[in-house]
Simulated scan of single mutants.
Amino acid sequence: MKSINRRVFVLALCAASPALAQSNAPELTINLESSSIGRRIELGQPRFRAAGRYQMVEVQAQNVSSRDQHIQYKIDWFDREGFSVQTTSTWQNLSLSPNAFEAIRSVGQTDTAFSARLTIRDAD
Score class of each variant (00 low, 15 high):
Asn5Lys: 14
Asn5Trp: 08
Arg6Glu: 01
Arg6Gly: 00
Arg7His: 10
Arg7Met: 05
Val8Ser: 13
Phe9Glu: 15
Phe9Gly: 11
Phe9Lys: 11
Phe9Leu: 10
Phe9Ala: 14
Val10Cys: 15
Val10Thr: 14
Val10Met: 10
Leu11Arg: 11
Leu11Asn: 15
Leu11His: 11
Leu11Pro: 03
Ala12Trp: 06
Ala12Met: 02
Leu13Ser: 15
Leu13Ala: 14
Cys14His: 10
Cys14Thr: 12
Cys14Ser: 14
Ala15Ile: 05
Ala16Arg: 07
Ala16Cys: 09
Ser17His: 12
Ser17Gln: 08
Ser17Ile: 12
Pro18Glu: 02
Pro18Thr: 03
Pro18Met: 03
Leu20Ala: 06
Leu20Phe: 15
Leu20Gly: 09
Leu20Cys: 10
Ala21Cys: 14
Ala21Ile: 01
Ala21Met: 04
Ala21Gly: 11
Ala21Gln: 05
Gln22Gly: 11
Gln22Glu: 04
Ser23Cys: 08
Ser23Arg: 07
Asn24Pro: 14
Asn24Lys: 05
Asn24Tyr: 04
Asn24Ile: 07
Asn24Met: 06
Asn24Asp: 13
Ala25Val: 06
Pro26Ile: 00
Pro26Trp: 02
Glu27Ala: 13
Glu27Lys: 15
Glu27Gly: 14
Leu28Ser: 01
Leu28Asp: 02
Ile30Val: 14
Ile30Asp: 01
Asn31Lys: 10
Asn31Pro: 00
Leu32Val: 01
Glu33Cys: 04
Glu33Asp: 04
Glu33Gln: 03
Ser34Ile: 00
Ser34Gly: 01
Ser34Thr: 01
Ser34Asp: 03
Ser35Leu: 03
Ser35Arg: 06
